[in-house]
């Protein structure tokens, strides 16, 4: 009995720091990555293509793009898909996600990113960051879930707008009237990184 009580106290004392260090580690991860990405952006000797590839490479280990694709499409539409269609959708969508993420770095050329806090929200960890650009401060939240291979980003929230949520409702709205093949076609067309927005 005494052993049990001791163990419970032990658990209470140590469980807290363990959780806290999870948060700390995830926060470190984000902080480090932002520093690396900023380094790439400020390094003018890199041409755009190499820079973009480097940014994507540095994110790839902790962004769970494939999972994001799945959740964005939603279970209702994902389940009936064949293996090949799933793969096709995932490829097109992930390409698109990466491109639109990268493109944002061209828009905000003078930004700084402040990493504020890592919050535990149920089983997830939200890392709150602020993008500071031309005096404006935009909140950006990286949402992490725990996987077998560590903590991975499954959603990004910018000014309260969740990327996954907006894609989910766009997809389900679109698929009510159109087929999956239409969607794939649409993703393939608009997903091509044809022109980048006007430069400053």
């Amino acid at each position: 009995m005494r052993k049990l009580i001791f163990l419970i106290i032990f658990a209470l004392v140590f469980a807290q720091p363990l959780m806290a260090s999870d948060q700390g580690d995830v926060k470190d991860l984000v902080e480090r990555n932002i520093k690396i990405v900023m380094g790439f952006i400020k390094n003018k000797s890199l041409d755009k293509e190499t820079r973009n590839r480097k940014i994507i490479d540095s994110m790839a280990p902790f962004f769970d793009f494939n999972f994001m694709a799945k959740v964005c499409l939603g279970k209702k539409y994902w389940k009936p898909l064949s293996k090949t269609k799933r793969k096709e959708f995932t490829e097109l969508f992930v390409k698109r996600l990466k491109e639109s993420y990268i493109e944002k770095f061209d828009l905000y050329t003078d930004e700084e990113v402040e990493v504020e806090a890592a919050k535990k929200v149920k089983k997830r960890i939200h890392v709150v960051t602020y993008l500071v650009s031309k005096g404006d401060r935009m909140e950006m939240i990286f949402k992490f879930r725990k996987t077998k291979k560590g903590w991975k980003v499954y959603d990004l929230e910018i000014l309260g707008v969740s990327i996954v949520l907006t894609y989910r409702s766009q997809f389900s709205g679109f698929l009510k009237k159109n087929s999956m093949d239409d969607l794939l076609e649409k993703l393939a067309v608009t997903g091509s990184f044809a022109t980048s927005g006007s430069k400053k």
Binding site: L18, S21, D22, D25, V26, D28, L29, R32, N33, I36, S58, P61, F62, K146, K148, K149, G150, W151
Partner: peptide, 13 residues
């Protein structure tokens, strides 16, 4: 989980 995070960050670096 801690270990896996360390691995993760190593991978990033």
């Amino acid at each position: 989980s801690q270990q896996s995070i360390e691995k993760e960050s190593l991978a990033t670096e």
